[in-house]
């Protein structure tokens, strides 16, 4: 095994081009487990900790460019307003020690369906900045996950950052595990209201071979909200709509039975989480609407 220590992003790209089998390691929270337990013996291990720009983020007009190695603890603390769904998801990642090391780049690189960031990324919307010596590709998050632990990166590409849409409405994230902390998702659900486009997006984790969106549920809810004029009148979502949304989310999943839970429980739990998180986000949206209506004219 060789240990590569690029000092700059350019060096990292060059190294990856030269050794496409090189395994990038940043937080180490996936890679080191595999090495410690003899599941993986890469020919090259490439440390990305020295590439300072991977640890940075930039808040723009409509987007946040989030470096691949920005630790989850920083996302929780510093990006709650801009990326509330991801900040909530970050808070559920493993333990404080792991949140201090792990970042979104690792979740994307590993592309495990259980990665906590995925549902939030899918719901919030964004693109993955995949870079190689050949140039930069912006891969829409919806196209990124290809199969169980397979993603759309080419062998010579590295993830520099994700470019995420800044939240224009409430977002929520919820995850079921059989322990009250430090737990891998049995299944997880993310939801984001997008009042600017009057749409709703979702993300499902650990309930299909890849992280997925519940597109039928999204379309149903988007249509129902539009039809009822809910975005404007700020009324509560009718229970029947919430129920159907929840059922459609559960229906979108394609879970399996494993040591962490059964397929039918996963479907059931997704429906509950979908209903609850829709309630929380919509109440927050309505509350904000009310506040705005109650503002005296300046």
């Amino acid at each position: 095994m060789d240990f590569l220590r690029p000092a700059t992003w350019q060096e990292a790209l060059a190294a990856k081009a030269e050794h496409p089998s090189a395994v990038p390691i940043a937080g180490g929270t996936d890679v080191m487990v595999e090495i410690n337990f003899d599941h993986r013996r890469p020919e090259y291990l490439m440390d990305l900790n020295r590439v300072a720009e991977l640890q940075e983020w930039e808040v723009g007009e409509d987007t946040v460019t989030l470096g691949a190695s920005v630790p989850y603890s920083r996302i929780m603390e510093s990006l709650r307003a801009e990326l509330p769904g991801l900040a909530l998801a970050a808070h559920t990642v493993a333990s404080p020690q792991i949140r201090n090391r792990g970042g979104v780049g690792g979740n994307l690189g590993t592309a495990s369906p259980a990665g906590d960031a995925h549902p939030a990324l899918l719901a919030g919307g964004g693109e993955v900045e995949a870079v190689s010596v050949r140039g930069t590709r912006m891969i829409p998050i919806d196209d990124f996950y290809l199969g169980v632990k397979r993603n759309a990166l080419a062998p010579d590409e590295l993830i520099r950052a994700v470019r995420l849409k800044k939240a224009t409405g409430p977002q929520q994230f919820s995850k079921v595990g059989t322990r009250n902390a430090m737990v891998i998702a049995v299944c997880a659900f993310g939801i984001a209201l997008h009042p600017d486009t009057r749409t709703v997006r979702t993300g499902i984790g650990s309930a299909a071979p890849t992280p997925i969106r519940a597109t039928t549920a999204e379309e149903f809810l988007t249509a129902a909200l539009e039809e009822g004029g809910f975005w404007d009148n700020g009324k509560a979502v009718p229970p029947a709509v919430a129920r159907q949304f929840a059922d459609l989310v559960a229906g979108a999943a394609n879970p399996i039975d494993d040591v962490r839970g059964t397929a039918s429980y996963r479907r059931h739990a997704l429906a509950v989480m979908a209903r609850r998180t829709l309630g929380w986000t919509w109440e927050q949206y309505r509350g904000k609407q009310q506040d705005e209506r109650n503002q005296p004219c300046a």
């Binding site: 937080g27 410690n36 291990l45 900790n49 333990s95 792991i98 090391r101």
Partner: peptide, 27 residues
């Protein structure tokens, strides 16, 4: 545990608590 699940290897790396079992020595 050597898999970041128990915290018994916690050290501070540049001031930040981390699981030292998940930091490659070279890092």
């Amino acid at each position: 545990c050597e898999q970041g699940e128990c915290g018994s290897c916690t050290v501070r790396l540049d001031g930040v608590p981390v699981c030292s079992c998940l930091v490659a020595a070279g890092q």
